[in-house]
C-alpha cells in the first residue's frame, strides 16, 4: 500500500493581477489560490489512495500566512500537511524550493511515491519535481497523464508532443502530472470544515539542515505588452502590393 506525498504551492491568483502605469505588476489587491496543476496532483493522489489504499500527506513551502492554502489542500484529501514556512519564503526560486522539500522529505517522511504538478500557475518553471527527485536520488517521470501501480511498480503514461509514452519505474519514485490526468472534484462543505481539524506539522527555517541560497537573480518583472496597430489596405492592385510589402517589413512573410 503506497505511502504518497503530494507537493502543492499557494500562488497568486493571476485573475487579480493588474498592470501598473509603467508595465509593472500591481499585486496590491491579489488573492491567492492553490496552484492549478497541484489540484490535479492532489486529486490523483486521492484517487490512488482510494484504489490501492495507503496513506497520503501534503507538503508545501511558503510564508507563514499561507495557512488558508494548507486548509484548502487538506480539504481535498491529504490526512495531514507539512508546512515549511518562513517570512523569507515568499519568492523562492525552484532550486531552493526543491532543496528545502528534499531536506524535509528525506529526514522526516517515509514515502513510496511523490506527486507534483507539472509546473506552478505563477512561474511554470517545471523545475521543482525533477529537481526534488534528483536530490532524493529517485526516478522521476514527468508529463504524466495516466498513473497506476502494478506489482509494486509505477506505470505511467507520459503525454509527449509526438505521442504517448508508457514507462515503468520502481518505487520510491516521483511523478509530475499534467491537467489531462483527471478532473479534480470539488470539496464538499464538510471536507472544508474538517480541514481545520487535520494535523499540520509546522517546520521553521531553523529546523532545516542548512540555508539555501538562490542561484538566480530576478532583475525585474514586467507585464508583457502587445502592440496592436491597424493599417487598412484597399482591394485594388496598389493596396495588395502595399499589404504584401508591410507583411514583409514586419517579418510575417519572407
Amino acid at each position: 500500500m503506497p505511502r504518497i506525498v503530494v507537493c502543492f504551492k499557494w500562488v497568486i491568483d493571476e485573475a487579480y493581477i493588474r498592470t501598473g502605469a509603467s508595465q509593472e505588476l500591481d499585486l496590491e489587491n491579489v488573492d491567492y489560490k492553490l496552484s492549478d496543476y497541484d489540484r490535479n496532483a492532489i486529486e490523483e493522489a486521492v484517487r490512488l489512495k482510494e484504489e490501492y489504499g495507503g496513506s497520503l500527506v501534503g507538503i508545501t513551502v511558503g510564508v507563514p500566512e499561507a495557512t488558508k492554502g494548507i486548509k484548502d489542500a487538506l480539504s481535498r484529501g491529504p490526512e495531514k500537511a507539512y508546512f515549511i514556512n518562513d517570512a523569507s519564503f515568499d519568492n523562492l526560486e525552484p532550486s531552493q524550493t526543491a532543496t528545502i522539500l528534499a531536506d524535509v522529505v528525506s529526514s522526516q517522511i517515509e514515502y513510496d511515491l511523490i506527486i507534483c504538478g507539472e509546473g506552478s500557475s505563477d512561474l511554470y518553471a517545471q523545475q521543482v519535481g525533477p529537481r526534488l527527485a534528483e536530490k532524493l536520488g529517485i526516478p522521476c517521470i514527468s508529463y504524466v497523464q495516466k498513473l497506476g501501480i502494478e506489482n509494486g511498480e509505477i506505470i505511467a503514461e507520459r503525454k509527449m508532443e509526438e505521442g504517448v509514452e508508457v514507462v515503468a519505474a520502481p518505487m520510491p519514485a516521483l511523478v509530475t502530472v499534467v491537467p489531462d490526468i483527471n478532473s479534480p472534484r470539488v470539496p464538499g462543505l464538510k471536507d472544508t470544515l474538517m480541514a481545520s481539524k487535520k494535523p499540520v506539522i509546522s517546520i521553521t527555517k531553523d529546523q532545516l539542515s542548512q540555508t539555501y541560497e538562490p542561484c538566480l537573480q530576478t532583475a525585474g518583472i514586467l507585464a508583457a505588452s502587445m502592440e496592436r496597430n491597424c493599417v487598412k489596405f484597399g482591394g485594388e492592385l496598389e493596396g495588395i502590393a502595399g499589404f504584401v510589402e508591410s507583411l514583409l517589413k514586419e517579418g510575417v512573410i519572407s
Binding site: 488558508k68 486548509k71 484548502d72 480539504s75 464538499g188 462543505l189 472544508t192 481545520s196
Partner: peptide, 10 residues
C-alpha cells in the same frame, strides 16, 4: 475567517 473564504471559494 479563512473557513468562510474557503467556503466561498469551494
Amino acid at each position: 475567517t479563512e473557513e468562510q473564504e474557503l467556503v466561498r471559494q469551494n
